[in-house]
Each structure stands twice: as C-alpha cells, then as structure tokens.
Simulated assay, not measured.
Amino acid sequence: MPAMRRAKRALAVGATIGVSLLTLAVPAHADKTPPGGAGSVGGGSASGDADDQNVSAEASGSTVKTDTHNNGKGPSVGPLTPAGNWTPPACWYAPKYSAADFKKLEEHTWSLESTGYEWDAQQRDHYAGGHPYKDFNLAKADKGYWWTSDVNTSFPPGWDSCNKEPFWVDNGTPPPADAPQAVTPQILAEIAYASVRVPDTHVTLAPDGATKVNLPTWTWLDKTNFKPVSVRAYVPLTGMNATTTAKPVALKLEPGTADAETYPASGECTFNADGSIGTPYAKGDADKTPPCGLTYLRASGDNGPYRLKATITWEISWTGTGQPSPKKLPEGTFGTTQDVTVDEIQAVNR
C-alpha cells in the first residue's frame, strides 16, 4: 500500500528532520549551485530570511532549489495565474540522497522505533537486505543517487500522485516507467514558473483621484516598473537546470462598470517599444483620445468609487539543460484594483 508507506515515512522523517537532515544534507557541487538566493521547492528543512518577499534560503535534502535573484521585488509582488487550466506540477521525483546519506537517514529513523518493528523490518529488507537493494547500494555510490518525491505546496491538488517509495537511478539511466513525474528540464521550468513573482499593476491616471463623466481618463505605466523577471530551478546533485522568464506584453483595463468606454475598445493596451504602456497626460490633451485609457459615462454616486482593475499579461518562456533556445509556457496574468471616483460635471447658470 504505497500511500500508507508514504504516510509512515512522512511521520518518521518529520519526527527526526530537525536532528538528522541538518547533518545529512546532500553536498551540492560548487560549480553547480548558484551563490545565494537559493530556496527549496518541496521537501526538506529550510531556514533563511525574506527580502522584499523574495525568499533566500538553504534547505537540507531538498530535491530542487530555486535562484530568485532576478525575480520581481518590492512590497507588492504576487504570483502569476497561468492561462487556461494549466498549472505547474503538484509533485515530482528527483535525486535527493547519495547512497551514504540515505543509509544514515534510514538507519537513524529505524533506531527511533517510531514506525513499528514490522515496518522497519520490511524497509531493512527492501533497502539493505537485497530485496531488491543491498546495503543501500553503497557498492554503486559513485554511479547514481536515491530519488524521492517532493511536492509543490503552492499547487497542492494532485500531490499524492507521487507515492512511489525512494528508488535508485544510475547516472545516465532513465527513471523507471512507474515514475512519470520524474524531473526533466521542462518540469524544472514549470517549478520555476510557480516561484515567479511580478509587481502589482497600479496604473497612473489623469485626472488622478477623481474624474468627470464623459471626460477621457488617461492611463499609463512607467517602463521602469515593468521589465522581465526570471527564476532558475536546479537539481543540486546533477546540475540539471532551467530558467523561466516572464516578460510583460499587454495591459487590460476593466472599468468596474458597464457604463464606460475603453481605449482601445478592447481595453487591451500593448507595451511600447521602450517598455512603457500608454502615454502620460500632458497639458492640452484634455480633448484628445488617449492611446490607453477610458471614459466613464455615469457618476459613481453614493455606492462608492468604481473598482478599476488593471491586469498585466506576462509572456512566459524557458531555457535550460538541452534547451538553449527559448521555449514557451502558457502565459500568466497578475492584476490589481484601484478606486476611481467619477463626479457629474457641474453646470453653472448665469
């Protein structure tokens, strides 16, 4: 019963992780691990700090780590919502332990007798007694690694589909067929996708704060606030890696009421060549149609301001091991709302 096995293993590892994994962390090769800015994805014990919501951490025994130095920064960043029904992987298999480290971890767990004699005896026979593994494959220590599953806590549905017990994979040999979620460069790219953070889309308005019925409101975004961001995911033990890049490509305006017109009519404003969106309002533009903006046709009234929603679409691509040319992943969006008060134009009778 794989699910029961995994539950027992989780309990055992959870009880010992503080005293064992910190001393049993798999050593990452210096030439394969980027300096700093690394965080774990999935299992393992992590410690670190947060700088502008950009987590920097080192995790013991994690299968995949992320480098977020080029991620979005600031007090108001958030994750992308992928287009359609696509989501990053909920779980995967990847190399996690050397033969010696896995032996130390398992033997320490058994010494605690926290999972019961029968379970421990079964595990000893499986990993050390030759059915099928003998002495944790120490004789092949330089020829492969123990693989296990990790989960993406940001996308929990489906995590229990990775319920295979830890298994050995020789270097250069494909993982077994019953581990279809085995890590690949593309899966790493999709894991990195889940860690991408982008800035909110608070647009500049003119008039600012309050506008008038039938008066065009100019909308724009400064180019310095919106630029490509990227996250790199990698397997410390093997050096397999992928970098996922998000590039802003369009802004969609939703006025918050049907009594409004948008410019363009679709409400979708594309980025200019310099990376900005729209054109800042200048004196004398009051009677012109803005290239990106809207006109409210009815006052917001006593019900409070309209909630203008501005959503940026981000084009997603990745490169990595065996994939030097950018390859696309589904687009993502991130939007925020802001209040817009619309007043009636007051006529003056003389």
Rank of each mutant, 00 (worst) to 15 (best):
G130Q: 06
V151H: 02
Y145N: 02
Y97P: 01
A141Q: 07
P89Q: 14
Y117N: 13
G84S: 08
H126P: 03
S149W: 05
S76R: 08
G72S: 07
Q123P: 07
A83F: 04
A141H: 05
P132E: 09
W146S: 11
A141V: 07
P75S: 08
L80R: 03
S149M: 06
A99I: 00
P95G: 06
T87I: 10
T109R: 11
P132M: 07
A141S: 06
S60H: 14
D120A: 14
A100R: 00
H108E: 11
W92C: 03
P157L: 11
P132Y: 07
D120K: 11
H69C: 03
V77D: 01
P132C: 04
S149H: 06
A121Y: 08
W146G: 07
H126W: 15
W146C: 03
P89C: 10
T148R: 02
L112S: 15
N152K: 12
L80G: 02
D142S: 15
K73W: 00
P79A: 04
D142T: 14
Y145G: 05
T87S: 10
A90V: 07
H108K: 12
K143G: 04
T153L: 14
Y145V: 04
A99S: 12
L112F: 14
R124M: 04
T68S: 00
N85V: 09
G144F: 10
W86R: 10
D101P: 00
W146I: 08
G130D: 00
K134P: 01
G74Y: 04
P79N: 06
T115P: 05
S154E: 14
A90W: 05
N71K: 03
D150I: 02
Y117V: 15
T87F: 09
T87E: 14
